[in-house]
Design a protein around this nucleic acid. Structure first.
Lengths: 228, 228
DNA sequence: AGCTCGATTAGGCGATTCACCTAGGCCCCC
DNA sequence: GGGGGCCTAGGTGAATCGCCTAATCGAGCT
């Protein structure tokens, strides 16, 4: 029961939902919550990006719920690939990361909503129904934040990793903050070690950091404070 | 169904377990997993420390499963209070934080086991049964790090950098935690870079840490929270 | 339409660091 | 006197760092 797999019940009446998360217990809780709704149904579960792509192909769900931090690959990458292979697939991100930091990135690569894991169960159901209705689901906080698009280029004080770094750079920054070596990051993202090192150099330049040790220290602290 | 509360079924045959976690979905997944076992039963759920203390008093469970990061209070504090009010209550920590950084702390305040949330569901059940059998549950990695003591009786003073590391090693450990490179440490201590590297290797061996990145992560966190 | 600019990817190269090994001088304890 | 831990430091091969160049691509400016 806890192994991820596709178990289509074949109901034409229920909305088919694919669940992508590498936390078995969380997946189970979410599955039970959703299956309690008479019009929603988990049609498959995946704990890796590869498995998610396979199941999306085989089950062609209406909605996919994906975690941003998978074991072997980036959640953002998975969303991009899902969107390009299945343009009509709606994607809801359910992540433990702070929405203020990641929601905008998730939307940019094609997600239709973002819910934090610490949120109440009702939020997930609300998000699902909002997205199924064709709208975008975000918390009030993030919605307020996304309205003003004004930035201050030049020497502004907006030197936060979230605003200055590009998507890829931010991704690498986070993985560095988890104590991963360049080699480990490269393997997880399926990139060359040199690419990761190049990203790291760009991050250092943007944040005004000189040594790799300093960057690691900064990334660790930042990662620690900005999540539940 | 998703609201935390005490619902004692009153079975004298099953082990009563109190669940303390502020993530509703995770709590639900964990509850379902545990209730599938015929001899285990979730007798109550709490999402705050206050509620946990109330339910522990009312339900007097055999085991409590608590998350380290609750909304309004520290999980460590909760464990301390639970232990002092109910000395026979066994406590299992299930946290999303890295075990290398938190497991020892949790054990010192009275927990009997530590499982990371990213671990498989089976690990939680193993941990529960190990603790019910009167033993301590830890991952192989953490156990390896805590092993070298072997002689401390009674109070169980753990393996903290302060007690295991020599003076010089601890000094180097602290400077590493400040994000200094080996070269910088060497210059500051008027020693060869090789000596610093040797110290670092010894520190890693003593603490059961494999890579320099992991050591840096551990050192930064330890320096941050200070006084193990 | 042409052009710049940033993002992403990746390789080269010399210096540095990593991980694992040996080793001498020191001090303490059995 | 013989372990054993501590502090020091070198050797070696692999990996990483820091600083280059560079191709591709899309977005935006002229």
């Amino acid at each position: 029961m806890t192994q991820p797999q596709g178990i289509p019940r074949g109901s034409a009446e229920t909305v088919q939902i694919l669940l992508v998360d590498d936390h078995p217990l969380f997946r189970q809780g979410l599955a039970q919550l959703i299956n309690q709704e008479s019009d929603l149904e988990i049609c498959g579960e995946a704990d890796t990006a590869r498995q998610a792509l396979t199941l999306a192909e085989r089950l062609s769900p209406t909605l996919a719920i994906v975690d941003l931090t998978l074991e072997e690959s980036s959640g953002l990458d998975l969303i991009r690939r899902l969107r390009s292979l299945h343009p009509e697939l709606r994607i809801l991100v359910v992540s433990m990361h702070d929405e203020m930091l990641c929601a905008e990135r998730a939307l940019r690569v094609g997600a239709r909503g973002y819910v934090m894991k610490r949120e109440a169960a009702e939020c997930v159901l609300s998000a699902i129904r909002t997205i199924l209705a064709g709208e975008v689901y975000l918390s009030e906080r993030v919605r307020a934040r996304l309205r003003p698009i004004g930035d201050s280029p030049g020497g502004g004080e907006g030197t936060s990793p979230t605003t200055v770094l590009s998507d890829r750079e931010f991704e690498v920054f986070q993985m560095i903050g988890q104590g991963l070596t360049p080699r480990q990051v490269a393997q997880q993202l399926h990139l060359s070690v040199r690419t990761i090192e190049a990203h790291r150099e760009h991050i250092k330049k943007k944040l005004g950091i000189r040594s790799a040790a300093e960057l690691l220290k900064y990334a660790i602290h930042w990662n620690q404070e900005e999540r539940g």
